[in-house]
Every structure is written in C-alpha cells, then in structure tokens.
C-alpha cells in the first residue's frame, strides 16, 4: 500500500494550483524515498519537475514503487474541498485503480474522503543534464511574479540579462518598451527579501512570458525563487517546498535564427 500523510496539506493545494494550467495529466511516481512528478506542457516548451521527500510526510509508507496517473484539473477541484489547515493523506491500495484523498481537520472531528479514478498516461521522461549555470539569481517570489505581470503589458517575450550589477528584465512590443532592473541587495532585514546574483559570466536570454507567468503561480509555495541561466540552455526556475523538496520549471529559450 502507498500512504502519505501531509500535515501541512496546503502545500499540496498550492502545488497543484501552480502546475494545473501547465500540465493536464501527470504521473505521480511513488517510491520509498518520496514522491516525484515530471511532465512537459503540451507544446514541449516547458517542463515541470516536482520532488517531495518521504521525510516531509508523517507518516510515509510505500512498500513498492507505484505510478499514480492523475488528471490535475480533477485533483485541483477535489483539493478545493479541503480547508487550508487540513491534514491531507494520499492513499493507493495495491492493485487498486484509484487514489484516495483524505482531508482531516486539525481537531480530527471532520474527515472527508474522495476516491479519484487513476488515468493511463503515456508520459515521456526526459533526462535533465547536470548544468553549471552562468548566473543564478535569487529573489523574492512576489517580485518575480510582479515583474512577469508588468512585462506582459508590453509584449509576449522578455529578455533577462544578468551582470555583476544585478539583473535586468526588458520587453518591447507594438505599444512601446520597458524594463525593470534589480540591483543586488547590499543590506536587507530578511534574507527572503534579498536579490542576489551568483555570476560566473554575464548572460542574456529571451523567454516567452506566457510560461514565466504560469511558473509564477507557484509563488505562494515559497518566499523566494531561484532563476538559473546559461547561454542557449533552458532556464531553471526553482521554488523550494519547505524543508521537503522542490518544484522546478524548465523553459526553453527563444533563440535568434
């Protein structure tokens, strides 16, 4: 049997809200070490990679590897039936054809149970090579979300340039052009408010804002986001999930022809 109880159930709610517009169906790979998911969007431009380690659950039981194919829209609808402070348990019986979701109120006086039919998903797994990135930018996730939203006023793509001074987002379209420049923070009250640029070499890449906007829906998961860039390789956008794992998005760059 597979059973994973997540005391902070709202993490799962935020996760599914963050990926459900990008990916319709996904295989949750359940292993003794934890739960993972990898899926591309339908146009094969971006990829979602989720990891939730077993030690983030309490308890976590996985006797053998299981693949749970789940429609994320359905899962999102079901998760809307839980409260933010509910404890959420995912269970799958051996040889069962469904995943069971249990929502438990903090005082345990309300228990709801939903049985979701599993779906067969032909999921291509990609090998993501280890990459030494030219620049790694860390910033508040709310700031990332705001910049992406602001740039969308101007056009459908954004050029992100990292240098020792900081990071510059710029867009131009029919109505005009604009940019937002963030300097590296010198002194901040909280590390979560800081902007840092870890630079090996200056790099400038162009990306579709539509996808960055979808990625930024993960902002409620984590106060900070990390953007990793290298010339002519996909952007990595990473949100940490408490102490238990991460939600990563990869986005292929736009390249001059």
């Amino acid at each position: 049997m597979f059973e994973a109880r997540l005391p902070q159930g709202q993490i799962l709610k935020k996760l599914i809200e963050a990926v459900r517009e990008l990916v319709t169906d996904a295989n949750f790979e359940c292993k003794p070490s934890g739960l993972s998911l990898q899926a591309m969007d339908s146009s094969h431009v971006s990829l979602v990679s989720l990891l939730m380690r077993a030690d983030g659950f309490d308890p976590y039981q996985c006797d053998r590897n299981r693949t749970l194919g789940i429609n994320l829209r359905t899962l999102a609808s079901v998760l809307k039936c839980s409260s933010n402070d509910d404890i959420i348990t995912i269970r799958a019986e051996d040889d069962g054809d469904s995943a069971i979701l249990i929502f438990e109120s903090p005082s345990s006086d309300r228990l709801s149970e939903f049985d979701l039919k599993l779906v067969d998903i032909d999921n291509e797994q990609l090998v993501i090579p280890d990459t030494q990135y030219d620049a790694v930018v860390r910033m508040p996730s709310a700031e990332f979300q705001r910049i992406v939203r602001d740039m969308q006023i101007l056009g459908d793509s954004v050029t992100i340039a990292c240098s020792k001074d900081g990071v510059k987002f710029s867009a131009n379209g029919e109505i005009g052009s604009g940019s937002v420049r963030l300097k590296q923070s010198s002194a901040v009250d909280s590390e979560d408010d800081a902007v840092t640029v870890d630079l090996q070499q200056a790099v400038s890449l162009t990306f579709a804002l539509r996808y960055l906007s979808l990625f930024s829906k993960a902002a409620p998961l984590s106060p900070t986001v990390t953007l990793s860039f290298s010339k002519d390789v996909p952007l990595l956008v990473e949100f940490r999930i408490a102490d238990m794992g991460h939600l990563r998005f990869y986005l292929a760059p736009k390249i001059d022809e």
Binding site: H44, V45, L126, V127, P234, A252, K254, I255
Partner: peptide, 14 residues
C-alpha cells in the same frame, strides 16, 4: 526575430 525552441532540442528522452 527570436524563435521558440522545443525543450526536446536540449533534453533527451529517457
């Protein structure tokens, strides 16, 4: 003009 690349141009299938 910049063209959108597919992710499959960078990552290989398992």
């Amino acid at each position: 003009r910049a063209a959108q690349k597919s992710l499959l141009a960078f990552f290989s299938r398992q």
